[in-house]
Nucleic acid binder design. Structure first.
Ligand SMILES: NC(=O)c1ccc[n+]([C@@H]2O[C@H](COP(=O)([O-])OP(=O)(O)OC[C@H]3O[C@@H](n4cnc5c(N)ncnc54)[C@H](O)[C@@H]3O)[C@@H](O)[C@H]2O)c1
Ligand SMILES: NC(=O)c1ccc[n+]([C@@H]2O[C@H](COP(=O)([O-])OP(=O)(O)OC[C@H]3O[C@@H](n4cnc5c(N)ncnc54)[C@H](O)[C@@H]3O)[C@@H](O)[C@H]2O)c1
Lengths: 209, 209
DNA sequence: TAATTATTGTGAGTAAGTTCACAATTGAAT
DNA sequence: ATTCAATTGTGAACTTACTCACAATAATTA
């Protein structure tokens, strides 16, 4: 590994894929895996896998491959899922509910500790072990809890306002489902579902790939 | 526009963003827009906007900008949302429900015409105007309806099996929410929500961007 | 009509990302 | 001990994508 090289952005997404793949291999009881096999499972090239990993160190053994358990733990450190992240969800609608109910997140160390909504009729509603709290209680909640990440699942027209409220607190990042570019200093990751629909039909219409 | 140039893949995603942006401008009653303004709203460079559009034609007027209404219609044609796409959802769980209830999809010409689930206890459940149909009725449904796209919102372990069933019919594409690489000839667009969480914490840990 | 300002469309230059190809290493087989 | 097969890690070549910079054009103003 030549140090200080900066990491191409697409590598970031692929690290998450590798991590999930390694988890599956681990569950399947596989002890050693070659870059070729990881690549085949993900539909990419083996040289890509090796090059990507090489940005962070030398984890394999020539002629043998990678120790699944070991590499998995390395990836945990690299990605940052080696510790628990406390998450709150704002907006207890369709998406908010789906996120709170999804066990896959807890499995990957994202621990949802609160759900907020501005609609009083939703307050108190049970979602798994959590119950919906009114948005106005947010400050009180931040005073009592450490929150790392916020999932923003409110309508488009409320999103910017909520972000401005969030800037008062010391959160580390936002997962944003609203189809809008948020103006904020906080790191944001957009999840844009309708964009995926449009990409798909574009590809279909032009017979790309 | 120099023809036959092939279109960089990132352009595809941005076309969807431009389309949504133009829709907003239209609703705001704005008649002409400069690449600079579109770029500012999306947080990218104006030269990127112009270059992207140039792959498909010359839509602007020098010194003036782009006619919002006109460009919007051009984008509809380019992306393929100039006609209605018939969509069915398989899996009436959290994500399936969110998709069916989301009005934003219909607005962009994705018309959901059916929801299927393998769980008999969910059959008959109302989601908006639709009610959940048992998965075994799929063939009957395909015989009576034209289906363009399928949203796959079933658990990971069921996803590949469902895809193999879908290959019997003549669908054009799949939006896949299951965290797994589907083996199929049908064009697939993956929506990977936990990957977004991992990308976000990676960026936070390394203070990227 | 000429000057001024705004803005597009794009070739050329730069940057980012992927793939190739092979020396280095490992373990197994003979 | 030597050969053989498998597989990594990586510099270099290649491919893809982005940005710059400016001629061309349009509208406005003097
Ligand atoms: N449902 C989908 O499939 C889907 C797809 C793509 C994008 N989205 C986007 O995701 C976001 C959420 O979608 P949804 O379907 O869950 O919507 P939803 O209407 O079901 O839920 C939104 C929730 O946010 C709450 N809310 C509104 N203003 C608030 C505020 N200021 N503070 C706190 N809570 C507030 C509402 O009371 C509601 O419960 C929207 O921006 C939507 O555009 C949804
Ligand atoms: N909920 C989330 O926030 C979230 C986040 C990331 C990924 N996902 C993924 O999205 C997919 C759906 O998640 P969900 O939360 O909606 O799950 P869910 O369990 O709420 O819903 C899945 C539904 O699929 C149905 N189903 C199971 N096998 C089926 C089959 N063979 N045919 C038809 N229907 C079948 C189940 O009866 C259930 O109703 C999963 O693959 C999950 O990993 C969900």
């Amino acid at each position: 590994m030549k140090d200080k090289r900066k990491i191409p952005k697409p590598v970031i997404k692929r690290m998450g894929l590798y991590y999930r793949c390694l988890n599956k291999l681990y569950e399947e009881g596989i002890e050693y895996v070659a870059s070729k096999d990881i690549a085949a499972r993900l539909g990419i090239k083996s040289s890509q896998v090796r090059k990507d990993l090489s940005y962070f160190g030398e984890f394999g053994k020539r002629g043998v491959g990678y120790n699944v358990d070991q590499l998995m733990k390395k990836l945990e450190d690299i990605i940052g899922v080696n510790k628990i992240w406390n998450v709150i969800v704002i907006g207890a609608g369709n998406i908010g509910t789906a996120i709170v109910n999804y066990p896959g997140l807890k499995k990957e160390k994202f621990n949802i500790i609160g759900v907020f909504d501005a609609d009083r009729s939703k307050v108190g509603k049970k979602l798994g072990k959590l119950s919906v709290t009114h948005f106005s209680e947010l400050e009180k909640f931040f005073n009592k809890n450490i929150v790392d990440l916020v999932v923003l699942a409110v309508p488009e027209n409320a999103a910017q306002m909520v972000v401005e409220e969030l800037e008062k607190y010391n959160i580390k990042g936002i997962i944003n489902f609203a189809p809008i570019k948020l103006r904020t200093k906080i790191p944001v990751e957009d999840v844009d579902i309708t964009l995926s629909f449009k990409s798909l039909v574009f590809r279909i219409e032009r017979e790309i790939k």
